[in-house]
Amino acid sequence: MRYILRRLGFYLAALAVAITINFFLPRLLPGDPAAVILGTSAAKLTPENLRAVREALGLSDAPLIQQYGLYLAHLFRGDFGISYTYFPTPVTKVIANGFVWTLLLGSVSLVLSFALGNLIGIYGSWRRGGLVDTVFPPLLIFIGSFPAFFLALGLLYAFGVKLDWLPISHAYNNRLPQGFNLPFLLSVLEHMVLPATTSVLLGIGGWALGMRNVMVSVLADDYVTMAEAKGLKQIRIMFVYAARNALLPGVTGFGIALGAILSGQVLIETVFSYPGLGFLLINSVNGRDYPLMQGLFMMITIGILAANFLVDILYTWLDPRVRTG
């Protein structure tokens, strides 16, 4: 418990630093955001125009420390301002909407690729040199080394366009009423198949190979040999003695991948026009939507920190040796 509290303290400190950087970084950039925004739409602008925009954006000539205080106050109220590209929707609302879709797509594909990859790794190492072990890891690594957009476009073309089995864009059928009704949920599932498959194919090889290699070394450990000598059932040796120990490094990787869910699907979401955070990020960059960008970066930071904290908790449960540390 003390360990968990100590980790929590560490993550809060990291969050404070991230919040501060998130404030100063845009302000350290050369140029005036207001001028940039107006520069794209109007050739000439008067000082009045400029001032109006700056006011709308919450930009002022006040001392930085005063601006920082205002920024923190807004932050704690959950106020990131108004998005330009989705004007006049508040940034928080835009992000909340994208967050749901990214989290759904990301967690489903991460859990699938983690579970399947690890199972392939466990089984492959158990029957080392067997069919599963010789075919799957190299094949999956080969597939996984394609660029994300290439794989995504390939699947989209084959299954969405040529065979016309699955929808090629968006996250649900617009014509159905949204909510917890079967037709809508089915349409969500249907829209998720292609982007999730892309994501799973990209990740699974790494999990399988990583698990296999750790398993091979764990299987040579004395406690596994002893478990075998004890005459225990294969399934218990495989999972409780070998895989349970071999899983530990993978959990760290899982945490990193979990944190990267929020930012890691930019290419896939773009190809399938999936309305998640990655899709929003591209739009915000294209539209010079600074408040949205700032909100997204904040969101991604919090996501990564929260995921790491979750892994710390999971680790104490999986590895009793950490508990006393």
């Binding site: 002893m226 075998e228 000598a229 409780v240 120990n245």
Partner: peptide
């Protein structure tokens, strides 16, 4: 073989330090 192991012949391994599974009691 599974039934034979440990019932007839049990073994204390070379490094008893490493012959216990670290993640279960």
């Amino acid at each position: 073989l599974e039934d034979f192991r440990w019932r007839k012949v049990a073994m204390v391994f070379q490094s008893a330090m490493n012959s216990l599974n670290p993640v279960i009691t």
